[in-house]
Structure formats: C-alpha cells, structure tokens
C-alpha cells in the first residue's frame, strides 16, 4: 500500500490546484500565510460564483458547465500564447471572446432547445455539456496540466513573514472589477433590468415586451465571459488541466449559495468565507479532506439557512 509516511498538512504542496506554500514547522506561524492564500482562493470562488449568479438572475437555470468556462479560459489562452505565439493581452482577449462564443453556442444548442424541459433534464443536459467540453479540451489541448506566466513580477514579495504573490493581487482586482461592472449592468442599465425581470416573473417580462430567451442568451455570454476571465487570472497561480473545471465550478456554486443565492454581494462574501475556511482547515486536518469542507459547508448552509448569509431574492418562503 502506498500510504504516505507522514501525513503532513502540506502533503499535496505543488500539485495541481494547490498553492505552493513553504513548509513552516509551527501550525500557528502559518495561519497568516493560510489566510492570504484563503483570500486568493476566495476571490476565485467569488469570480466563479458571480458567473452562476449572472445566469440565475436571468433565468432559474443552474449551469453546471460554468466550471468548464473557467478551465477553457486558461486552456485557450495557453494555447494561443504557446502554439500560435500571440502577445499575452491579445491572447487573453481572444480567449475571452472564444469562450463567450462557446457560452452562446451552449445556450443555442443545449439550453434553448430544452426551454420547455423539466428540471432533471436541464440538469443532465448541462452536466452532459460539461462532460463534452472537458473531454474535448483534453483532446484538443492535451491532458497535461498547464500554467500561464504571471502578469507582472516574477517572485512573491514578502510582507513581514508572509509571502504574497503579485498574481493574487491581480485576482482580487479582477474580482472587484467584475463585481463593479456586473453591479452597473444590473442596476444602472435597462438591459440588466430586463434580464432580472425575465427571471423574477416570466409572464410579466413577456407582457412588457422583453424577449426572455434573448436575455438568457446574453446572460450565458456574460457568465462565460466572467468564467474565462477567472480562468485567465488564476491559471498563473494554479495549474489548470482538463478535469479541474468541475470542482472549481461546484465550489463557485457553493460560494454563491453560501452568500445568498442570486446576489452579487452574496457570491463575493460566500467566496471569501469558503476560501478562508478551506485554507484554514488545512492547518488542523489533513489536506486531503480539504475538498470535503466545501461540501460539508454546502450541506450545513442548505439545512440551516437555505437563503444564505445575505438572504436571497429567489428563496423567499421557508418551504422552497
């Protein structure tokens, strides 16, 4: 049996999807470092959760292929950067465009034909789309995990005893910008209000002349864009491989539910709470259990407070 000799907290350090942390000896000394990495994780979950929220605010669909957009964002950028040597910003922009196109196609080919389908069928269809996207990206880009070069600077800089990678700051900035633009979209433009109307009251939206399917179509594009931005910003820190989309997507969804399903601020708050909790848990329990933490939080929040921390506009009654 290949049981590891020492079940250290950092057994997986350097592996796929794990931050590379120096192996400090004392548990309490690494707490600030874990906090920093937790905030980075939290920003990522928040970004992915915002993608879910965008679709939820335009229709009551939950798109399980959201994580694949994140994976594709990183993968396509890597492909454009390395195989067709494009300059970095151009590669990133074209990757976002390509993923937005994939999001539109997902709506046109899967969601729109199933507009009258019942819930289990829609659920299965988005899961099938997620399977298709991840396995075809394995075909197209190979199965090896990939990492993009960081946006700026090379090594991490030190604040006191804590080392912070510049890319983490980039992720935080991206989260803030996406949050800001989503807020402006849904609170300051007619388009955003039309999107929200098509989710809250389908008949009312139809009567006021809003094309509901167009709104859902646009929401899929926006959410694919957010997913790909997340993918591009996180691939310099964490290796992205063809199967890493599912777990990131699920955790983003958990973040959105934890903060308050359907609220932008909720996704952000939930993301940070989830990221920090997960990171800090590494100090106390073996890191293999880290993935279970998110799902335990999901079960607890669904049982104790399905509305989420901030409350949800879609889940109003006690029985839902």
């Amino acid at each position: 049996m290949f049981v590891p000799a020492r079940r250290s907290a950092f057994r997986h350090a350097g592996e796929v999807g794990e931050p590379i942390i120096k192996d400090y000896m004392d548990t309490w000394n690494i707490i600030p470092q874990l906090l920093i990495s937790g905030i980075t994780f939290g920003a990522i979950y928040a970004l992915v959760g915002l993608g879910f929220v965008t679709i939820a605010r335009a229709s009551q669909i939950i798109n399980f292929a959201q994580g694949e957009f994140v994976m594709l964002g990183g993968m396509v950028t890597f492909f454009l950067l390395k195989t067709i040597p494009l300059p970095y910003p151009l590669a990133a922009l074209s990757a976002i465009l390509i993923v937005v196109l994939i999001g539109f196609l997902l709506h046109l080919l899967v969601i729109y034909p199933l507009r009258k389908a019942t819930l289990p069928i829609l659920l299965m269809a988005t899961l099938g789309a997620s399977l298709f996207l991840s396995s075809s990206s394995a075909l197209l880009f190979g199965t090896l995990p990939k990492a993009l070069p960081p946006f700026s600077g090379s090594g991490p800089f030190e604040i006191g005893k804590v080392s912070v990678s510049p890319q983490s700051l980039w992720v935080l900035v991206a989260t803030l910008l996406v949050l800001l633009s989503l807020y402006l979209l849904s609170h300051r433009t007619l388009l955003g209000k039309a999107m929200e109307a098509s989710s809250t009251d389908a008949l009312g939206a139809d009567l006021s002349g809003i094309s509901r399917h167009l709104m859902i179509f646009l929401a899929f594009g926006v959410s694919a864009g957010i997913g790909s931005i997340a993918g591009i910003f996180i691939t310099p820190i964490f290796y992205v491989s063809y199967h890493s989309g599912t777990l990131i997507g699920l955790k983003g969804f958990i973040a959105a539910v934890l903060g308050g399903w359907g609220k932008h601020g909720g996704a952000i708050l939930g993301g940070f709470v989830l990221g920090v909790t997960e990171s800090l848990s590494v100090a106390f329990i073996p890191s293999g259990y880290k993935d279970a933490i998110a799902f335990i939080i999901l079960l607890l929040i669904l049982y104790l407070r399905p509305k989420g921390i901030l409350g949800s506009p879609f889940i109003d009654s006690r029985r839902w």
Binding site: L109, A117, L131, F132, S135, S136, A138
Partner: peptide
C-alpha cells in the same frame, strides 16, 4: 479518446429529442 466527447453529444441529443 474520442469516446467521451461523443458520449456527451449523444446524451445531449437524446435529452433534446427524447425528453
């Protein structure tokens, strides 16, 4: 290696045409 993408497409098509 082509089996998984084909499987995904078949699943989606079956769901669309035989809901």
């Amino acid at each position: 290696e082509y089996s998984l993408p084909i499987y995904g497409v078949i699943l989606i098509l079956l769901l669309i045409f035989f809901p």
